[in-house]
Design a protein around this nucleic acid. Structure first.
Lengths: 227, 227
DNA sequence: TGGTAAGACTACTGGTGAGTAGGTAAGGCG
DNA sequence: CGCCTTACCTACTCACCAGTAGTCTTACCA
């Protein structure tokens, strides 16, 4: 988690524009995540960023533009974090496992980002939710493709795209909510939470109750299952 | 979905307090679900309800009280709808199935309620989220108890409470998100969506890919799987 | 048929927060 | 060293909205 620098008292030191913009964005994500879009005030964001309000407007435009920029930046960071963790050549279950680990890893280290993306963005109407729905749609699409691809390994008639999509939506949603739950119960490491979801969606309660569990292939031991 | 009566132009007809309160609550749920807590204005709520602002304050108190009352009412309605659908004597998988059907049935017929509960309430901080977290916690607790109980049927060492709870959180979350997805893709009936989630969480992708599916016991045919 | 209390309204206040006008310091470059 | 550009500030305007004061009106009962 970023350590926002303390509230300044005098005049801020001169800094190049790019640096200030990053500071402002960090502050904005922080404030938006804590208060939500409407309750967050530009005054507070500027204060946390350590500059004055007109700088905000000079650099990042209106409040709405600022919020949209936050969403885009954080969404991109997250998708990249996940994409980096997944190898397209692996078998489906391993890909899923890698994706889950990367996802929970990101959330664990960027709680504010996650709050902004998951709660604030989706609960505001208009272009924000749309922006977010786009990214969410891409994530669901990826998972759905994974599912359809999984079916190719078996001799079962290929599931309909709609069906795969809704299953993917359920899975993505399970991940989102488990991440939320995890924020309130942060005792456990990311790897354990990810493994639990992996077991749920891959094995199902039916198998789990019967004592069957999924476990990652033991090769590739450089990535330990604990964080 | 309620058909909110159109915007009045003259003076409203005299009505007994209880009736007016219901109208106001319906209007409030409608407006809060569309705009969120902050963006919703008491003026708009009063307009949709077909009365003037002072009536709002006379009957339901402040904006915060009104919102909290909405949450409580809708949460209670939903929990009751689910509880009514589940028989405690049934085997675990059937209980889960009934619960899912009842849940998706409720969401399908009360979209505004669901928006208020799932999005708006949780994204506002303070006592609202707490209220909501309570209900959510009860739901998770119920599912967790179901899971622990399931294990008793098997010879597996009983899963830890924490583990059951996180699995339940994932399941509840999967339901929430699938419901959200469904709102955007409302072609399919509630029963089909519920069945799909049931299959996912009970069988798991592993079994589904292999062609194994869960299906409800064929007795009790008076409840058809379609809505 | 008139009295009255609950139901309803118009028209205001006060506070808050988005966005801006106009002015001040600080680094760079001749 | 003086000039200009870029970073930065204080102090405002204006709109919107929660909440209220004071007044009118209608259904019901005696």
């Amino acid at each position: 988690m970023h350590a926002e620098q303390p509230v300044r008292s005098g005049r801020a030191k001169r800094l190049p524009r790019a640096v200030r913009e990053r500071q402002i964005m960090d502050a904005a994500v922080d404030v938006f995540s804590r208060l939500g879009f409407h309750a967050a005030s530009m005054d507070e964001i500027s204060e946390v960023a350590g500059i004055s309000k007109p700088m905000l407007y000079a650099y990042l435009g209106s409040k709405e533009e600022l919020f949209a920029t936050c969403i885009r930046r954080e969404a991109t960071r997250m998708m990249e974090a996940i994409a980096t963790g997944v190898e397209a050549e692996e078998p489906p279950d391993v890909q899923l496992w890698s994706g889950l680990r990367a996802f929970f890893g990101f959330v664990g280290e960027n709680r504010a980002s996650w709050q902004v993306l998951h709660r604030q963005a989706s609960s505001q109407g208009g272009p924000f939710a749309e922006e977010l729905a786009d990214m969410r749609g891409r994530a669901i699409g990826l998972v759905a493709a994974l599912l359809v691809h999984s079916s190719d390994f078996s001799n079962v008639p290929r599931a309909g795209d709609k069906e795969a999509e809704s299953l993917a939506a359920a899975l993505v949603g399970a991940g989102e909510s488990l991440a939320d739950w995890w924020l309130d119960n942060p005792q456990e490491p990311a790897g354990v939470v990810a493994a639990r979801l992996m077991n749920l969606v891959w094995m199902g309660f039916g198998d789990l109750v019967a004592g069957d569990v999924w476990h990652p292939p033991s090769r590739r031991a450089e990535r330990s299952p604990e964080d």
